[in-house]
């Protein structure tokens, strides 16, 4: 791993930060589920997303990390909070939760956990063994060249889809146009 990194850019305390960030992600994930108050859940989700951005940074993907912060933590979650705060929380808290599906949830959790354990045990043979080549210095530039060169068509299709979604949202929200 050390050879792949440019000289002078040695990461500091990698293991410590990995465990710190993944621990934060897991903890906030748990909080998202167990907190009764939806605002607390949303805040926990924000912390989880930020910790994830930190993990992306450790994987030498600064662009993804930046986009994660701007889009998820800065944009989408603010809208989430906005909507939650406008809803009458006290009434919704008093209402009975009717989706008691803990048995199904438990089964799904066991299945997913089993999958993780299998991957952890057999992972060496399942995935090709290759050391990733981190390109920290011009990661963003390479993403740009890829998106607007090789994958131009797919990128434009995706942006057209988003445009359709925006127009659809406006049409649905506004009664008289």
């Amino acid at each position: 791993m050390q050879q792949a990194v440019q000289p002078g850019m040695q990461p500091v305390a990698t293991t410590f930060f990995f465990y710190l960030l993944s621990g934060l992600t897991l903890l906030s994930g748990v909080f998202v589920i167990v907190r009764k108050n939806p605002v607390h859940s949303a805040l926990a989700l924000i912390f989880g997303l930020l910790a994830q951005a930190g993990l992306y940074l450790m994987l030498y993907a600064p662009f993804v990390a930046g986009v994660q912060i701007i889009l998820y933590a800065g944009g989408i979650m603010v809208l989430f909070l906005f909507v939650i705060m406008l809803v009458n929380l006290e009434r919704s808290q008093r209402e009975e939760q009717f989706n008691k599906q803990w048995l199904v949830g438990l089964l799904a959790a066991i299945a997913l956990g089993g999958l993780f354990i299998v991957v952890y045990v057999k992972g060496k043979n399942l995935f090709p063994y290759r050391i990733a080549q981190p390109v920290e210095t011009n990661n963003t530039q390479q993403i740009g060249v890829m998106l607007y060169g090789q994958y131009m068509f797919a990128f434009e299709i995706a942006s057209l889809l988003l445009l359709v979604a925006i127009i659809g949202a406006v049409v649905m929200a506004k009664k008289r146009i």
Binding site: P62, A65, G66, I70, T137, N138, N139, T140
Partner: peptide, 10 residues
């Protein structure tokens, strides 16, 4: 940072 201005805005 490689993403300096993006980081600042975010």
């Amino acid at each position: 940072l490689n993403i300096g201005i993006l980081f600042m805005l975010g």
